[in-house]
Design a protein around this nucleic acid. Sequence first.
DNA 1: ATGAAAGCGCTAACAT
DNA 2: ATGTTAGCGCTTTCAT
Lengths: 338, 338
Amino acid sequence: MTSPPQAKRPVTRADVARLAGVSPAVVSYVLNGTDRPVSPATRTRVEDAIAALRYRPNAIARALRQGTTRTVGLLIPDSSNPLFAELSQEIEAVADAAGYAIILTNARGDVQHEAQQLRNLVDRQVDGLIVISASMVDPYVDQLQAMGLPIVVMDRVGPLPGITTVGVDFELGSSIAVEHMLSHGHRVVAAVLGDDGSPSTIARERGWAGALQAAKAQEGPTVRVPFSREGGYEAGLNLLSRPVPPAAVFISSDLQAVGFLRAAHEIGVAVPEQTAVISFDGSLECQFTWPALSVVEQPLTELAHLAMSALLEGEAGTHTVVQPRLIARASCGCLPAH
Amino acid sequence: MTSPPQAKRPVTRADVARLAGVSPAVVSYVLNGTDRPVSPATRTRVEDAIAALRYRPNAIARALRQGTTRTVGLLIPDSSNPLFAELSQEIEAVADAAGYAIILTNARGDVQHEAQQLRNLVDRQVDGLIVISASMVDPYVDQLQAMGLPIVVMDRVGPLPGITTVGVDFELGSSIAVEHMLSHGHRVVAAVLGDDGSPSTIARERGWAGALQAAKAQEGPTVRVPFSREGGYEAGLNLLSRPVPPAAVFISSDLQAVGFLRAAHEIGVAVPEQTAVISFDGSLECQFTWPALSVVEQPLTELAHLAMSALLEGEAGTHTVVQPRLIARASCGCLPAH
DNA sequence: ATGAAAGCGCTAACAT
DNA sequence: ATGTTAGCGCTTTCAT
């Protein structure tokens, strides 16, 4: 009688040790290749046993023992926002290269839920937290800080005292956009801004206003709408259905710009001929709008690298700011639409 | 002399037990509220101690003990594809509601890397795997199956023998799209298809051809390009720069349709007047294209629910197929663009 | 160069 | 109703 079709008990370090005829410790020595001396002969025996049994170390047990999961928690407002989806992809790639896995959660624009998710990630013993565009109002965050859990906040310019941030210079980026408009000869630039009153919205507004002021140009009308295609559409309807639509508009985000373009098409305002547009972000979607959007691009790969290294090696409380760059396409009037 | 500023050793179940004056086991009883009887008095003492110490159970230790991490691995081709980003968001929401966290990885279109990531997830002791649009060529998958780890494959119609799949009926969806074109009076429908020869591409082609045949209508030209905006753009250039552009085109995916529309604008072909278009997927992006895309929509929320329940409760090897539905907007000629 | 043993934080079977 | 204890699979002193 043969044994029953072998219960699928996972193979452990002990099984390997038994087959190789060594103690469990030696298996660890071989696997973790620290400077522990192992004779070539036993090393081979262990390696053969590992291969024969298809042994794979249990990361959970290792995590419990070592006190590190090689996992980082990533909290995002909304994966369906292409900017965040693209950024999280970059972060995942960088983390993976460093041997870290990503536990991903969505805040869903709900502060309660955000706090809940944060707690959940910490309970799961993540080694660090990357939090994008968070409200961070939860006092729990302070507590995390105090516990020494590394946290990096992105897409949010300071000043969160004591909290590490990595992000783009929104003010500079916005002024670059406006200056480019001015170089096209515009003397008045309108703005579509976020309606959240967040620091990054304020920074963008300041960049827009500052660039105009520096050039002694004039502030056009502003409209504040949510960071969404719908918001941008609404803003477009608002601005473009006026008796004389603005000749140049700075738009705070790609998503809003996409909605704005739709409004322009509906109303029959030609972009860039009647209204020139530059937006902020530079997600993939805006390369294929009609006309293609000129953008101030957030360097997502660079941001992802900086965030991970700030998380893993950085000193808490630093604020890393990277410079966005202009990508001129058709919507500002640089390229012929065709 | 006071003790130094308190090393941040995390508080454990033992600390709680000590403070509450009970044994560590009782703390577990209180927390895990199984039908274990605990006197109201001690329960309160324990709860107070938990609150006072801000104790949170270590999920890793619990996982090691219980043999379940309440974690599912999600392998996606590419988070920057809006369809996958939106689907992963839905999956995350459903998983979260069920108390599961998602470990997210990207396959990056690389079979080697895909296999690597899969192994990584398994090493991390995920309770199940949701794999989207995978090549699944790796023999390791069979092994996983054999080990009894639940796996659900999405965005891929059968027949992966023995593997659970959840997906949309691509053939039906495609025929719905074509039938709708026919209802607009078209008698010839062209097709933009994927170039990967995958089962889902074949199914879409069959749906397109089948609907035409059933109506005794005629197959227009087909062009096979990658599932990307660039691919669709190329397809658009190809089809629309012909002496007589096709009057109706079925496009395999939103991403391709977005590229196709850009080609139409560049060439100056009016959609839907000169060329009507319907695409497959129904991601958010295509509501704001110009004109708005008519689509056959994948019900992502439903798919996410089905995938999770197939994973957690389902019997292996089942094939769940859901019906997509038509959302007629402007690009097919249903709605005025304006 | 290898082994024995302690213990990471938790749960659950088994006392009492 | 509560306590004791034996692990889960692993790493890492400390012995030998």
